[in-house]
Amino acid sequence: MMVALRLNRQGTKDRPYYKIVAVDSRKRRDGRYIEQLGVYNPMTEGTNFNIDLEKAEQWIKNGAQPSDTVRSIIKKARAAALEA
């Protein structure tokens, strides 16, 4: 089973927010996921994400492939963690 770290769309029309999830790569975008790692809300300004870096690192270490957007969010979260 290939695990992917990707976004799961929530919210209403024109007001999206996303869950960052670990999911079997064969599942559909909003299908059942294995574990929720965080959230991303593109509608807010400033820091618009919250992710558990330890869980994300563990999944990546075990072979999970993050999507481009999730990879970007993880990179930003690492930079924010270093600043704090």
Score class of each variant (00 low, 15 high):
residue 51 I to R: 05
residue 31 G to K: 08
residue 81 A to S: 14
residue 15 R to I: 11
residue 51 I to L: 10
residue 31 G to Y: 12
residue 76 K to S: 11
residue 41 N to F: 04
residue 16 P to E: 07
residue 42 P to H: 08
residue 36 Q to K: 03
residue 64 A to L: 09
residue 24 D to M: 13
residue 32 R to A: 13
residue 31 G to E: 12
residue 74 I to P: 03
residue 16 P to R: 04
residue 73 I to C: 12
residue 37 L to E: 03
residue 23 V to C: 14
residue 58 Q to M: 05
residue 73 I to V: 11
residue 62 N to Q: 10
residue 24 D to T: 04
residue 26 R to M: 09
residue 56 A to H: 11
residue 78 R to A: 13
residue 52 D to W: 09
residue 15 R to P: 02
residue 68 D to H: 05
residue 46 G to Q: 03
residue 81 A to L: 15
residue 8 N to I: 13
residue 50 N to T: 07
residue 74 I to T: 00
residue 50 N to G: 15
residue 38 G to D: 06
residue 80 A to P: 01
residue 12 T to A: 02
residue 21 V to C: 03
residue 70 V to Q: 12
residue 77 A to Q: 09
residue 71 R to E: 05
residue 63 G to K: 01
residue 11 G to Y: 00
residue 43 M to D: 06
residue 75 K to M: 14
residue 75 K to D: 13
residue 38 G to A: 12
residue 3 V to W: 01
residue 66 P to F: 10
residue 59 W to P: 02
residue 53 L to W: 11
residue 83 E to S: 14
residue 36 Q to N: 10
residue 1 M to N: 01
residue 61 K to F: 13
residue 16 P to I: 05
residue 70 V to A: 14
residue 7 L to D: 05
residue 48 N to H: 12
residue 48 N to D: 07
residue 75 K to Q: 10
residue 31 G to V: 07
residue 40 Y to Q: 04
residue 45 E to H: 05
residue 14 D to N: 05
residue 46 G to K: 12
residue 81 A to I: 04
residue 35 E to Y: 06
residue 9 R to P: 04
residue 61 K to G: 04
residue 35 E to F: 07
residue 46 G to L: 06
